[in-house]
Design a protein around this nucleic acid. Sequence first.
DNA 1: CGCCAGGACGCCC
DNA 2: GGGCGTCATGGC
Length: 269
Amino acid sequence: MDYSIRGCDIIVSERDLDLDETLDCGQAFRWKKIASDYDCTYEGRFLNDYLMVSQEKSGQFIFHNTTEEDLLGKWVDYFDLSTDYSEIKRRLSEDETLSKACGFAGGIRLLRQDKWECLISFIISQNNNIPRIKGIIDRLCERYEGRFPTADELSRETADSLAYLRSGFRAKYIEDASKRTASGNTALDTIAKLPIEEARSALREIKGVGPKVAECVLLFGMHRTEAFPIDVWIKRVMAEYYPNGFPAFAADIAGIAQQYLFHYIRCNS
DNA sequence: CGCCAGGACGCCC
DNA sequence: GGGCGTCATGGC
């Protein structure tokens, strides 16, 4: 990554990033594509920090109204800009299918999201589609001046008082996750550092958190790149290309590979 | 009307 | 331990 300051904006050069692929691939649900003069522009938030970011046709990125301090202190981390994704793709390309997937969706990066927001978001995601997931999260954040509520705030709600979300049977799961997290019964910061199997079981104590949601929280919210969420699409990939299991040489970055594969199979079948 | 959506749960055998 | 109906909601 390379960057330069231009007035109130910061221009970032990074080859292994595509905003459409990264912000609209189902790993984060709160980025909105807005009209602009650029190739594409998104606005969104990480915790309490707002960002508008554009991608130009040249491949450069404009972080609007951003200080150097915010770029280096927050957004470099969020977009995982200090990780060399060229090297990751080189490693994965030892496998033929992964090589194709990387070639197809090489601009995906694994965002370093907030654990808590990620937990609630993927509880909402179960048996749901992406537009409706976004709608539910929008309604939730609208109630808190556009920011994502804290666990303390949400723990004061009940499944009934959450009816305005129209999240269906997931409301009782949101209630349980909130009360557990607010009380300290579920300690997300601690879970993030546990050995993967212990982290899995700790997350699955929460009602509504099964294998898939737990893997998503580990991967997207805790940056555990060995986590490997399996949904209907990845099941197809596994059945067709990896009947004997995912290649062991890439086990430590299986979750990143999963993102490339997910995008690849969905757009090409 | 039916089917499906980045699933999990409860119950069955 | 695997198989299956059920759970809200909304778009098609």
